[in-house]
């Protein structure tokens, strides 16, 4: 091949790249050594002893054996935990619900009103329009009787009735059990007329709730 016919770019090209021989700066090596030192420390403190069943990074697990689970006893704490896991996606952590979609619990006359209705709603769920504090919501609440035990429902409701601005009496797991017995055959969620037809009976363990605002007789 003739050079003149070769593409012009080739003739103006530089030779293939070569290496310079500048040394690695000392400060860079020092920095890299410091990084390696940090890495060793990090691995010591955050490796969970290299165990396959330690997931919490703060657990320094050299020579660790799994503990037998201890239980938290405070019903409000347990109730809050259950509320956050089961209820907060609709009613929110703030208890304010979502305007127009999910009703609020904070200040609601269903929450602070007769406990028989409140327990019935949680056990069976709700369907169709429901007027809460002068706003009509039209949505579905699932039934919880298949998912939560009496004790858990009692903890959730006790928490809800005493959180935010609510100041109503606790609800005991016995009274939830008694209500559950009344509703065992019920399969569908409740509608508004059915809820309002429930006698405004105060369940045992909720005696002081009479101080809270009463549900309106009709809407």
């Amino acid at each position: 091949m003739d050079v003149a016919k070769a593409h012009g770019a080739l003739l103006r090209e530089h030779t293939e790249p070569r290496d310079g021989a500048a040394p690695v700066p000392l400060w860079l090596l020092t920095f890299f050594l410091a990084l390696a030192f940090w890495a060793g420390g990090y691995l010591f403190f955050y490796s969970g002893g290299f165990r396959g069943d330690v997931f919490n990074e703060n657990q320094i697990a050299w020579g660790y054996t799994p503990p037998s689970a201890g239980k938290a006893k405070d019903p409000i704490t347990l109730g809050k935990r259950l509320y956050v896991a089961n209820c907060a996606s609709c009613h929110q952590v703030t208890g304010l619900g979502q305007p127009g979609v999910y009703p609020p619990l904070d200040g609601s006359h269903f929450v602070n009103g007769p406990s028989s209705r409140l327990v019935a709603i949680v056990l069976n769920g709700v369907t169709g329009p429901l007027k809460v504090d002068n706003t009509v919501f039209n949505n579905n609440m699932p039934a919880w009787k298949g998912l939560l035990k009496d004790e858990q429902i009692a903890q959730i409701l006790t928490y809800v009735r005493q959180e935010w601005s609510n100041q109503s009496a606790p609800i005991s797991s016995e009274s939830v059990a008694a209500q559950r017995a009344k509703w065992t055959t019920r399969a569908d969620p409740l509608t508004e007329p059915e809820i309002l037809a429930i006698p405004t009976e105060e369940l045992p363990g909720a005696a002081s709730a009479s101080a809270s605002p009463a549900a309106p007789a009709a809407h």
């Binding site: 935990r81 509320y83 956050v84 896991a85 089961n86 952590v93």
Partner: peptide
């Protein structure tokens, strides 16, 4: 995620962290 990494538990996305 566990309590130290974000608000997953506080948001109600689970009752505990998930594991393998």
């Amino acid at each position: 995620r566990g309590e130290t990494q974000g608000s997953d538990l506080a948001r109600g996305w689970g009752a505990r962290r998930t594991v393998a």
